[in-house]
Amino acid sequence: KLDILVAQAPTPPRQVNGTLGRSVVLSVDLSPGRKVKEIEWSFRAGSGVTIQLAEFSGGKFERPDPNDRFKQRLERYNETSLRIKALELGDSGVYEARIKIVPATVEELAFRLVVYEPVPQPRIRSHLLTSTLEGCNVTLHCQGSGKGNVSISWGRGNPVQELDPGRHQLSPDGSILQLSLQPSSLNATYTCTVSNPVDQKIIAFDLQSICRSGDADASFSKPGYIVLTFFLLVLSLGTAVWCWRMNNEKSADPAATPTGPVEESPSDPQYAEIMRSPPEGNDQALRHLENNTERSPQKEPLITTIYDKVHRTPENTSEEVT
């Protein structure tokens, strides 16, 4: 009689995702009524050597090599589960639990742990293509890089809804979204979600912040500049007229015209009045000169200079010699 032994295929490892710097628990779940005698935990990174990590025996937690790469980062979570703290990227690998069950049953359970970095906070960079009264064409670029399995997705509104393929175009990697919208759709909010298996971050972008400003620029470029030019022209003319009137008022103001006596320039030639007294006994000539002065209608003073007549009287005569 031949005994046929059927080997049961090993159960595929359970997928477990961890975040860099955080903790993860590898849980062993057994059916009720089964009593665990001992559990041995081991670790293998890729095709490397398998390392024995810990033993659960009689309610105790033992570490065969406390100085391995995990050091103090391993601890017993409950009677059957193992906890790994302060995860590192090198902790990714396969963890196996060899479970001895009373009376004499052995089961093996495997976990595939992958440690991911948290995704960075994304940013949206916008580029306005055209913005007119008929609509707005804009490109949104979601920037959110990270190591590992990072994906980028777009949504619209709150709550987030899927995009309409007819008016939205995505780049192959999903990071760039091109929009062609009508004026009635310009009040929409678009969201970019950057995620990996352990983390997710979302950023929103209000389309009005770029499309409305674009409309304002476009509308101002034609009639707006004409009105501005006309206003500046009127302002310039008004300023010129005001300056002209102020200058005329200053010219017509008598207070602005000096009324004091005009001082003679020291450089003008001075002509002194030279009066020569007639000789004694020539009273007739003196009286004749005084009479001429009184008869002058302008009553101008008689000025005698070196260029005027010089009266000479010969001795013992009364004739006036010129």
Rank of each mutant, 00 (worst) to 15 (best):
S151K: 15
R34Y: 11
I101M: 11
Q143V: 08
T259G: 08
E40Y: 09
T229E: 07
S27M: 09
G281Y: 14
I39Q: 02
L235P: 01
T80E: 11
P254Q: 08
T259Y: 11
Q208T: 12
R287I: 09
A285N: 06
T305N: 01
G58H: 03
G166C: 06
G260P: 05
H127W: 05
E79Q: 12
Q284E: 14
Y225F: 14
P254W: 10
F111L: 01
S185M: 13
S145I: 05
E38I: 09
N158S: 13
E62G: 12
I101V: 10
T304L: 14
P64H: 13
H127E: 06
Y77N: 10
Y77H: 11
P172N: 04
A285Y: 09
S171Q: 04
R212W: 12
Q15D: 11
P223N: 08
D164H: 07
V49P: 09
Y307C: 05
E264K: 08
I176Y: 07
P261R: 13
A104D: 12
H168F: 07
S184H: 07
P165I: 04
C243F: 13
E40D: 11
V6L: 10
T259C: 07
R276V: 12
N282S: 08
G18I: 03
D68V: 05
P32G: 04
S171M: 06
H141L: 14
K222I: 05
G59P: 00
S277I: 10
S145G: 09
E38R: 13
Y271P: 00
E96I: 09
R212F: 15
R73W: 06
A45V: 03
L128S: 01
